[in-house]
């Protein structure tokens, strides 16, 4: 994977996690989140899976996600994450910034003109 791809992926992991949880509308555990992101991105978001957890914990720490444990003691228990109100607000801000950034970059790089042509 090229350096620019790595940087793009790092910079966008937060917003894609928030978007996924907002779209799904149900609490999801880390394993589900990773599989969904891989599936939705056609493999572009192919993570070292363990490195997603520090990001999830950071988002929880910032109050953008909340978590709870699912499952009874003695069975397989999973920690699930759900969006908070602050998370929804942050997602809206991030999407807005992303639209402006991508629009500006597309203009600067002439990508839209090429596609239109």
């Amino acid at each position: 994977m090229s350096s620019i791809q790595q940087q793009m992926r790092k910079g966008t992991t937060t917003v894609v996690i928030l978007k996924l949880l907002a779209d799904e509308g149900v609490p999801m555990h880390g394993y589900q989140i990773i599989r969904q992101l891989e599936a939705q991105s056609g493999g572009y978001f192919s993570f070292k899976e363990g490195l997603v957890y520090p990001r999830l914990h950071q988002l929880e720490r910032e109050g953008l996600l909340s978590s709870e444990w699912e499952g009874k003691p003695g069975t397989r228990r999973r920690k699930v994450y759900r969006m908070t109100q602050d998370g929804l607000c942050r997602l809206a801000e991030e999407l807005d910034q992303w639209r402006r950034l991508s629009s500006t970059l597309n203009q600067m790089l002439g990508v839209e003109q090429e596609q239109a042509g």
Binding site: K48, E49, G50, L51
Partner: peptide
Amino acid sequence: RFGPGQEIGQALQATH
């Protein structure tokens, strides 16, 4: 698939 334990542990430690 999970990745290098040392790197993950360090990232978790830094987060918490």
